[in-house]
Design a protein around this nucleic acid. Sequence first.
DNA 1: GTAGAGAATCTTC
DNA 2: TTCTGACAGATTCGG
DNA 3: CCGAATCTGTCAGAAGAAGATTCTCTAC
Length: 531
Amino acid sequence: MHRTLFNDLVELCRILERTRSRTEKIALLVRFLDKLGEDEVIPAVRILSGKLLPEYSSRSLEVGITLIRRVLRTLPDRGLILEHRPMTILEVYELLNRIAKACGEGSRKRKERLLTALLTRLSNTEREYVLRSIFGEMRIGVSTGLLLEAIARLTGSSIECVKRAYMYTPDIGELASIAKINGIDGLRRTTLSLFRPIRPMLAEICYSIREALRELGSIVAFEYKYDGVRIQVHKKNKKVRIYTRRLSDITEGIPELVEIVLDNIKCDEIILDGELVGYIDNKPVRFQDLMRRFRREKLSKDLGSMNLLPYFFDVLYYNGRVLTDISYENRWGILEKVVDEGILANRIVTKDMNAAKDFLKRAEEEGHEGLMAKRLDSIYTPGVRAKTWLKIKKAITIDLVIVGAEWGHGRRSRWLSNYYLAVWNDSNDEFLVVGKTFKGLTDEEFEEMTKRLLKLKVGETERVIWVKPKIVVEVAFNEVQRSPKYKSGYALRFARITRIRYDKSPEEVTTLRELGRIYEEQFKRKARLNK
DNA sequence: GTAGAGAATCTTC
DNA sequence: TTCTGACAGATTCGG
DNA sequence: CCGAATCTGTCAGAAGAAGATTCTCTAC
């Protein structure tokens, strides 16, 4: 059997990193995949894509930045190594797997030793790419999209065929392997089956009802967008399994949900897509609190009163039939018949803007995130962010001042691109950080912001340039969270800069008190936990 | 030897 | 989770 | 009518927050 050197893979990565053209990257990938031995495809593709373990795997590497730093410090100088036999892809992959397998007492040490053993046998360049792969960030401009194209070219099949196959294959390495060994037929044979979770379909963001109606056609389905955790439920008679968005099985942690499914769904075989929400006293809990309850092994007292409730909004499989290719409207028809109303997502179908607006208002008043808008004739595309599903959720904006910044990485390494945002604490005459953001500015603005910030520099700790609070920005966010980390006690969820406020001075930014008020206001709609 | 604190990592959004 | 930018193909514009 | 300019879809990559679990370390 053909054995490819790990260094060949690293060379490919280096070339890919330098290559800008996508078509050329694909050609390079095809040539490489073509030369690999059949048993090398999974390891090579997993390393190349920075996804060393498939999503559904219950194992994880548990190698982070700290461990790597420690290993790198103690690594013997490359010049002293006696063994020069280069490693093959399979050998590298095997060692990585052994690192992932280590668990229990002393496992951190074992992982460290194994990683040291691996890196010791690699050249400096090889080390770099192994580490990138461990981190899951290859930064070679190749991810699933281009790999799928490459697989299509490799087998001579259409990109649609490969994408379809990928929807039902949880791991791109396995897909490449199927393509390599079984060709087009193998790809065509992949399909949805019970207790093999698939990646859920994703939605694009949209800013208004008007936009949604314009994008999706004259008549549109609007569903409540619940603020919870995405779940995929597989049921066959009395057997029920529940999976997350990243395909891990969380059935054991939420037995009450299994009961709900068995009690409220009347059919033999089904796969459902939905959202799991926490309730206390008929009010939904904040996401932060749901996390405390969600797949937790032992419950503390205050969480005992939290009910978990699923809302299903799609059906992908029903009594032996795969439904992903039939229309949303037809799928809903089946869903409606099989699933009790109480655990069905709240929905209307309308072409009337005002009806939709009222519906959005109701969703928000009931403490939910917003609405989903869906095209009636759309098919279900697993793992794909489709423009046939749009999410509409409200954002709040406030003005904050930048008090610190960090240098970026990769294409942003020349800029201060990550900003500490602060409110004004009027009772103590100080600025207090309420979170960081790196989102919202254009390259040009980063360039300018970097210059302005450097002029305001007042100090520097390890990674942060602290600046005089002068620059005010308008920041959008979705929720105020309680923060154990920041002195202010608050943190913003999904903060992003929407505008640089040249016209505002730091004295005019939002105060701690005002932010506190926004925080409190959330409890008009959301349940409060004693914490 | 063990309890509890702390660090590191992972997972959800 | 959100956001911006690059590439590639499709479409429109100007002479 | 043809090449250039502009638009559009898709992909990649930049990083945020909290909370739970697991392992390690420290104090007794």
